[in-house]
Design a protein around this nucleic acid. Structure first.
Lengths: 234, 234
DNA sequence: TCAAGGAACTAAACTAGACAAGTTTTTTTA
DNA sequence: TAAAAAAACTTGTCTAGTTTAGTTCCTTGA
């Protein structure tokens, strides 16, 4: 384990376990240097990570103040699998496969001008607290993953990619819009009129910059909310 | 000017001016060390910033690859004033003040449980390409700013806070939901039925962690879009 | 009493190295 | 010629310091 990540996780655990409460000061750089027996730069790397993610506020001359992190929870700016999201928010959820197609073309409005690739389409319905809430269309780059087994789609695609295939997911670009429900939304989300749908279209890439997948997530707008942490900087 | 920010801005300018194109490699750490006459850690700080913001992808043993940053433009995860947004996207826009009230209470659904403070309310309408698009409710902490002159509200509140008052804006927490238009939306955005509205409720804080303002931004959903860059990490 | 000054803390920026671990290119060897 | 080895690159992590700048608190002197 990298030393700075060890320190980061130790501090984050203590913050999330409320051992440090909102407004408390974290131990100073010097104290952490002594506790862990590392150099100051290594401590500062851990502190910087907590700062960047909105857990603490560092003030020169004073220390690192713990912020209220209850609200930093489901940002667009994090890549989280649906499974992770459901688990960390203690939701009751089901997963249904609607259709699997292979090979398929990626729709043009997902490509944003990028060249088409050979993909496998997996369409899934997410049922949260007994209410159909999200419709997911995953176009998976079969050159990278091969054919995805049905069981992986039922459980968690990300888990399959990362743990079973050993792929390293790196970043995603997400386009967010609000659109009216189409006929598939009406049918699969079991709604009876054209209520708004939050549409998140994303392109996910691996550490080697290869495209892993294109995804379209269609959320019932009335069941949708997101919290973002944003910093102002030079 | 801080050295690492100088290097960051130089590289960012070159990326945005397409001197480095998508897929190109940035100069290596060693070359930048020589060019700027600084230590490697200083160079790496600049590189890390570009990486964090999604402009480049660093690969060990290879170099820093320039990503396509055309799409990284209006993320929730940035704090940008409306003025800055309009300018960087080359939009034609007008700004109308609908009402100014002082003192006012902050509505409970903006406070998220925080204690109430003395504020001045400024309600503004943003007209983009001759279409009323956004309705902004700003509840400004008068303990910090005093009474805000009307001209500042007409121009840019952020500019007034940062340049005229010398305040240091630090971070914001934003809650994003989709709701149906209320009667004020219908009236001021000049829409004739209850089309969806993207509501961004935010709390903005200063470097000393004091609350600067609570804001509710109500966007016509059909004119709304956002692009987010998200990294996956340990 | 209280205000000014200084000591003791804090983080921020920076330096100048080290070694590890990857990739690419060049050279050597079979 | 082709494969293997070595050299020369790259970024990633880490060490052990220095200087700068800001906050907090205690002491000293009017």
């Amino acid at each position: 384990m990298k030393k700075y990540l060890q320190i980061y996780h130790d501090l984050l655990n203590d913050i999330q376990a409320k051992k440090f409460k909102e407004g408390d000061l974290l131990p100073s750089d010097t104290k952490l240097v002594m506790k862990y027996g590392v150099s100051r730069e290594t401590v500062r790397r851990a502190i910087k990570l907590l700062f960047d993610e909105g857990y603490i506020q560092t003030i020169r001359g004073k220390g690192s103040i713990v912020l209220n992190s209850d609200r930093v929870m489901f940002p667009f700016s994090k890549i989280e699998s649906y499974k992770e999201l459901v688990t960390s928010n203690h939701l009751h959820s089901e997963n249904k496969i609607i259709k699997i197609e292979e090979p398929t073309d990626v729709p043009k409005n997902l490509l944003f001008g990028a060249p088409n690739i050979a993909t496998q389409l997996i369409v899934r319905k997410r049922i949260v607290n007994d209410l159909p809430t999200v419709l997911d269309y995953d176009y998976i780059n079969t050159d990278v993953t091969g054919i995805v087994p049905k069981q992986a789609a039922l459980n968690s695609l990300f888990f399959y990619f990362e743990h079973d295939l050993g792929l390293k997911i790196n970043y995603a670009i997400k386009h967010i819009t609000v659109e009216l429900a189409d006929y598939d939304d009406l049918h699969f989300l079991e709604i009876d009129k054209h209520i708004p749908i939050v549409v998140v279209r994303s392109e996910t890439r691996l550490a080697d910059n290869h495209i892993l997948s294109y995804t379209e997530s269609r959320h019932r707008a009335d069941k949708f909310s997101s919290v973002e942490f944003a910093r102002r900087h030079e």
